[in-house]
Design a protein around this nucleic acid. Structure first.
Lengths: 121, 121
DNA sequence: ATAACTGTATTAACACTATTAGTACACTTA
DNA sequence: TAAGTGTACTAATAGTGTTAATACAGTTAT
């Protein structure tokens, strides 16, 4: 369910965070479902528990999971998650469009490049 | 002409590289125009010459400038620069659109969010 | 030729971050 | 009570970004 890409330049804890976010947003993990314990996942991925701990802390901070001490970490049922994540995406989009306009790329060119991009979904 | 934003999390050499790329792409700096010497710019920005050296090496590697030993660094006249940079932008755009589609955002929503975004240009 | 400017290369040091390692404490469940 | 859970802390290691100091080589102007 979770994996690490060692060719990826991003830190491991960030990859783990991103991966869980995706699984939750896409509904693969359901609200109140238990996710692997810090120690278990660390063994599975052959990395240090602290790294998983950091990823889980981040997920909790962003509202994707909640923690019950002594029991484990569970998927949040927060309906706002989708809206928040969409906002992140749109912010990134605005940022790259700004760069595009600065480079003289027109709105039409951008839209053209996007159209037909969603064939793989 | 060049400045450093210390609130920016990106490394200084990357900011300098990006800044020169923009000045060249937008035609502020013309082909064969001399850019500041490594030592001069380092003093201007109050940073180490090695950091500028790194930025210039990267700019040369990407074809934005060329170096004449003992004389200085000069803006390249490569016409392909624009095409290459546009490709970078479009690649970034594809990447973020992929994330958007994975989050269930539709093509129409993306296009709507882009339209009217170019008011500041 | 000399001085003053250029780029280039090398080595060392420092700070910060990502990660590992080990340990300890507290809570829950069987 | 034992085994599993999250949490907290400190230390060590590796990599990166940056600074610092120095040296070498080519160019230009005098």
């Amino acid at each position: 369910m979770i994996f690490i890409d060692y060719r990826d330049t991003r830190p491991i804890y960030e990859q783990v965070t991103e991966r869980f976010k995706m699984l939750i947003l896409r509904g693969v993990l359901c609200p109140d479902e238990k996710i692997p314990s810090v120690r278990n996942l660390a063994v599975d991925l052959s990395i240090n528990p602290n790294t998983i701990q950091r990823a889980y802390s981040e997920l909790e901070r962003q509202g994707y999971i909640y923690t019950v001490k002594g029991k484990g970490n569970f998927v949040s049922g927060d309906k706002e998650l989708f809206r928040k994540y969409r906002e992140e995406i749109f912010a990134g989009l605005r940022s790259i469009c700004k760069a595009a306009f600065e480079a003289g790329i027109t709105e039409e060119e951008i839209i053209q490049s996007i159209k037909g991009e969603n064939a793989n979904d």
